[in-house]
C-alpha cells in the first residue's frame, strides 16, 4: 500500500502566495478529484508536487511512503513512483518517447528492451496511433494525441501515484472513455501486476469524473481545499457552480517560468 501525504503545503510563485496550506492523502487504489475554478492554483499544486522550477515551497511537507519528496529532484520523485500527466505537454524535438522511457527504465535498473513492446501494447489499449511512438516527443501532436501520449507514458512507467492535470481537456468523448478505462483498470489491478494506482485528478469540469468515478472530491479554491466529500459534491457543483464556495471572481494565478521567445531554441517556423 502506497501513500502520498500532503500536509499543510504552502508555495509561492514570483513571491505571490498560491498554495495556502493544502492537506490531502492519496492511497493506492483511491481516486481523488481536485476541482476548482480557473486560477485557483490547481496546476500549481501539481507542479509543486513534481518539483517544477520557479515554484517555491514555503511550508508544509509531502511524503511518498514516508520519504520526503520535497527534498528530491524532479527525476528522483518520478523514480520514487510519482507521475504527472501534464496539462500542456511540451514539445521536445529530436527525442522520441521511446528514448525517454528507455532512459527512465535504465535509471531504475529496469530492462530498457521492454519499453517498445510495452508501449505498443499500451498504445493499442487507448487507440493511440503507434506511428506516434517513434516521432519526436509531442511534436505536431493534437491536444488529444498529447493526452493519450501522457497516458501511454504513465502506463509504461507504472507509477504508484499519478497526478492527472486536466487530462480530459482536448480528449473527445471516446478517447476520454478509453483513457479513463485504462486508468480505472490500473486503480484496481495496478500496472503489470504491481501495486494498485492511486490517482489525484485535477480538473475544472465534471466530464472526467463521470468517467473516472472518484472516491473523494475536493473543492479547491484560493489555494486551499474548501471542502472534501463523496461524489455527491461534484453533483452539487454541477448544479450551483463554484459560486457556492467562492464569493468573488478570483484572480488568475501567475504561471511560473513564463518563457520569453528567445529562450525557445526549438522554434521551427515550418522552415526547411
Amino acid at each position: 500500500m502506497s501513500e502520498l501525504v500532503i500536509s499543510d503545503l504552502r508555495a509561492t510563485v514570483d513571491g505571490k502566495d498560491i498554495l495556502k496550506g493544502v492537506t490531502l492523502t492519496v492511497r493506492s487504489g483511491e481516486v481523488h478529484a481536485v476541482m476548482g475554478p480557473n486560477g485557483s492554483g490547481k496546476s500549481t499544486l501539481s507542479n509543486v508536487l513534481m518539483g517544477k522550477p520557479g515554484y517555491v515551497v514555503t511550508g508544509g511537507a509531502v511524503t511518498l511512503d514516508g520519504v520526503d519528496l520535497l527534498a528530491m529532484a524532479t527525476w528522483e520523485r518520478a523514480q520514487a513512483g510519482l507521475y504527472l500527466a501534464m496539462q500542456y505537454p511540451v514539445e521536445v524535438p529530436g527525442i522520441s518517447v521511446k528514448d525517454v522511457l528507455a532512459e527512465a527504465y535504465a535509471a531504475s535498473d529496469r530492462d530498457r528492451q521492454l519499453v517498445p513492446s510495452l508501449m505498443a501494447t499500451e498504445a493499442n489499449l487507448i487507440g493511440f496511433e503507434r506511428e506516434f511512438l517513434d516521432r519526436p516527443l509531442n511534436v505536431d501532436l493534437s491536444g488529444g494525441e498529447k493526452k493519450r501520449n501522457e497516458t501511454v507514458q504513465m502506463a509504461v512507467l507504472g507509477p504508484k501515484i499519478a497526478i492527472l492535470d486536466e487530462l480530459d481537456s482536448g480528449l473527445d468523448v471516446d478517447a476520454l472513455r478509453a483513457v479513463s478505462r485504462r486508468i480505472e483498470l490500473a486503480t484496481t489491478e495496478g500496472f503489470s501486476g504491481g501495486e494498485r494506482l492511486g490517482v489525484l485528478a485535477i480538473t475544472h469540469y465534471n466530464r472526467l469524473l463521470e468517467e473516472l468515478h472518484p472516491d473523494v472530491v475536493h473543492i479547491f479554491a484560493n489555494g486551499q481545499i474548501l471542502e472534501s466529500g463523496g461524489p455527491e459534491i461534484a453533483t452539487r457543483l454541477e448544479e450551483t457552480g463554484y459560486a457556492a464556495w467562492v464569493e468573488e471572481e478570483e484572480q488568475t494565478a501567475p504561471t511560473a517560468a513564463a518563457r520569453p521567445v528567445v529562450d525557445d531554441p526549438f522554434f521551427s517556423d515550418g522552415l526547411l
Partner: peptide
C-alpha cells in the same frame, strides 16, 4: 529550455 528539461525529467530521466 527549462520546460523541456522538466518534462523529460518528470518521466524519471536523470538531469
Amino acid at each position: 529550455d527549462e520546460e523541456q528539461r522538466f518534462y523529460v525529467e518528470s518521466r524519471g530521466v536523470p538531469s
